[in-house]
Write a protein that binds this DNA or RNA. Structure first.
Lengths: 175, 175
DNA sequence: CTTGAAATACTACTACG
DNA sequence: CGTAGTAGTATTTCAAG
C-alpha cells in the first residue's frame, strides 16, 4: 500500500521526437492516470493499471514519463492542519510602499520565510500580494502579526481576513 | 487485501503524561515521518524507516496509525497546473446579498461545483467568501465569470484579483 | 504497548517478444 | 503494448523489551 516509485531514469530524447509543447499530448489514459493519482496516489501500480485498463508495466512507464516531464510535480502526504496544530487559516492582503522591482523582490524573499505561509501571490487590484497563513489559533496569529508580518520589508498596509469556515480546499483540478 | 486494522486510539495516558491536545501525542519519530511524507511520499517504506531510524514494520505501523487517525488525510500527486492547461489563478472575493443561513448554504453548495475552484472559505471583513479558481487563460476565465460566477446564488458583488505571479504555493507546514 | 527478526505474498522492475 | 521472469518490497507472524 505504498506510493508508486520512480526510478529516475535518463531517457531525455523520447522515442519519436517529442513535441516542443510543455504538456506533451495527454491522451485519455494519461488523464485517467492523473485523475486517479490526484485523488489517491497511495494505490499500487497494479491497482492503478487495472483501473485504467492497462498492463502494469505499461502503466508504470506512463507514470514515470509523467513524473519525468514535470507534469507530476511530486507525490506528497496531505496533513490535517487542525490535527497538526495549525487549525487557523488567515488570508492576508498586502500593499507595498513603493512599486519598484527591488521592493517586490525584497518582500517576496522575506514573505516565503514567514512560518506557516502556505501561499503568496502577486495580484492585480487593490492589493499587491495575497498570502495565506496557517497558524495555531488567534493568539499565535496575533503574535505572528505583531512580530513578523508588520515588519515585512516595504509594507504599507496589511489587511487580514480570518477564515471562519473552510468550505473547500483541494489540490486537484479537472483534466 | 490490505485491510488496515485500527487499534481504537485508547492510549490516553501515554508514556509521559501526554497532552490533552486533540493532536494525540506526536513524538519525535512521528513528526519526522510526517515531515518526510509531506516532502515526498513516493519513497519506499524501507527507505522511510531507515531515515527515521526504525525497523520497517514499526515504521509501517506508525504510518498506518497516522492515516487511520486522520492526521494524514491522504497521499496525492501534485500536478503542475501550467503543464495541465490551468495556468491561470484567480482569487475572488464574494459578497452575498443577505447574511442568512440559507443564503450561505446555497452559495456554498453551488461554489463547490464551479470547475477549477480550488479553495472556498468564509472570511471576516469586507467579503463573505474568498475563492481561488484555476483556469486556462483570461479567455476561459472571462467565460467562467460571465457564465457561472455571476450566477452563483445570492451574490451581490464579486471582485476578482488575478494572480500575476505565484511566489509560493505549498501544501506543507511546520510540525 | 511498542519494537524487531524472520517468513511469506505481493509488487516493482527489467528484460524480451 | 504485453508476457514472463527476477529482485525487492510490503505485510504478517511471532517473540521479546
Amino acid at each position: 500500500m505504498n506510493a508508486i516509485k520512480l526510478r529516475a531514469a535518463s531517457r531525455a530524447a523520447g522515442p519519436t521526437a517529442a513535441q516542443a509543447d510543455p504538456r506533451q499530448a495527454l491522451d485519455r489514459i494519461d488523464r485517467a492516470i492523473l485523475r486517479q493519482l490526484q485523488n489517491d496516489a497511495s494505490i499500487s501500480n497494479v491497482a492503478l493499471a487495472a483501473r485504467v485498463k492497462l498492463s502494469a508495466p505499461a502503466c508504470l512507464r506512463r507514470v514515470e514519463r509523467l513524473k519525468e516531464s514535470g507534469l507530476i510535480r511530486g507525490v506528497v502526504a496531505l496533513i490535517d492542519p487542525k490535527a497538526a496544530g495549525a487549525g487557523m487559516l488567515v488570508i492576508i492582503g498586502v500593499v507595498l510602499d513603493r512599486s519598484t522591482p527591488e521592493s517586490f523582490a525584497e518582500f517576496e524573499k522575506a514573505a516565503q520565510k514567514v512560518p506557516g505561509c502556505m501561499e503568496c501571490h502577486v495580484v492585480t487590484g487593490e492589493f499587491d500580494y495575497f498570502m495565506t497563513i496557517r497558524t495555531r489559533d488567534s493568539d499565535s496569529f496575533n503574535r505572528l502579526h505583531a512580530e513578523q508580518l508588520l515588519y515585512l520589508p516595504g509594507v504599507r498596509q496589511i489587511r487580514s481576513f480570518m477564515v471562519l469556515k473552510e468550505i473547500l480546499s483541494t489540490t486537484k483540478f479537472p483534466l
